[in-house]
Design a protein around this nucleic acid. Sequence first.
DNA 1: ACAAAAGTGTTTCGGCTACACCCATGC
DNA 2: GCATGGGTGTAGCCGAAACACTTTTGT
Lengths: 233, 233
Amino acid sequence: MKSGYKYSKHHVAVDCIIFGYEKNALKLLLTRRVFEPEKGKWSLVGGWLRENETVEEAAARVLLQFTGLKDIYLDQVHVFSDPERDFGGRVLSIAFYAMIRIDQHDKKLVEKHGAKWWNYNRIPDLIFDHSEMLESAHEKLKLKASYELIGERLLPSRFTMLQLRKLYEAIFQYSFDPGNFRKKVLSLRVLKKLNIKNTTESKRGAYYFSFKKKSEFPLSDRIVKLHNKTSHS
Amino acid sequence: MKSGYKYSKHHVAVDCIIFGYEKNALKLLLTRRVFEPEKGKWSLVGGWLRENETVEEAAARVLLQFTGLKDIYLDQVHVFSDPERDFGGRVLSIAFYAMIRIDQHDKKLVEKHGAKWWNYNRIPDLIFDHSEMLESAHEKLKLKASYELIGERLLPSRFTMLQLRKLYEAIFQYSFDPGNFRKKVLSLRVLKKLNIKNTTESKRGAYYFSFKKKSEFPLSDRIVKLHNKTSHS
DNA sequence: ACAAAAGTGTTTCGGCTACACCCATGC
DNA sequence: GCATGGGTGTAGCCGAAACACTTTTGT
């Protein structure tokens, strides 16, 4: 592509921290690096940025290639740009984190690329600064999860309150009070209770929930409090 | 610099959203673009990434060049990478926001570069996607200011509670209750009251405050609550 | 006298926490 | 019967919000 600029150019990569959730455990998709340097070592899933795409498109392309999934949730984490970070030369890397539903992805693609899902609390050593990227991504995930109820992109389409809570406990490494967690989550009015019970995880059986679609949100939820609010002068 | 990689390379720029604060108003440093395309139009302060520096170093270099200041607070905002975003060719831009004390910077440098401080609510049209960058930076600034007391890097070394509150009101575009704001801020225990009064902004006079240095934080502040806390199993 | 900011006190409200308690059921 | 998760209720605490009120001083 043409460019009128005459300054130095740089290799740019995207690296994806791909979170998944299965069997009450937070997971991460890692791959063995297929070229030198550090060939064969465990690495985040990444790829090179091409001429005519945004970094988001590059990350989505990499995700598609490794999981067969489109329209995956992606969010920029940070740019890592230490000139020495990649032993093979100066490479900027833009880290993204993604959330995918493990039950939906293409396992054969994962195998084909020599990738593997790892339990989040047993991650092997990673190349370069990938551990640092992972940590930043985890922080960002926690921030997001503290602002809004996540799970729609990690859990199966229906799930019990226990499964949702275990997801949060895995993300925050913290035990939440079951009753309080339930009340808080339900107060957000983003879930709907299904008339189906899961009986595999408890004797009594627990109702399944799913995330409401946009069209299912009632229009009449309270918009403003009924008393005065200080407004800007 | 040597590189073993054989993939396409990209122009990479940094653009800085430089916040300042003066006369009870939030300000932004903008410059006139000095080369084509869009020469002469208002733009964020930016520069090209060089071979042997991080993007943070590039941003700091640009800041030094425009303000004469070192050790400025800088934080990554977002990467903007639409192939069409820069009319002159494919350029990735990494946006940073910075906070500087207007009273400390070198005004001659600003003039020399044809830059100018703008009142935040009267920003002119900006080139490319710079308005979008600005908006993202503002969001990020608000997030930071909601988590911790900022002002140390924007206000003079001593300031009144009124000045601090006006800063927050400028950032959030919202009027805060003076009494409640004061109590909240003081409860954070990060400010110290000086024995000097400012009498220019009120008849009665208001004590100056300054941010505590690290060494001034008491070691004996309560660390944990004295009752049990649910811990992770 | 009055306006305007400084600074303190008080009441109310809502959300979070801890925890008690009953339910349903498989073992 | 008992252990386990499901699910509901409630008392206490704490911080935010609203707002009253006193102080000080320049005009």
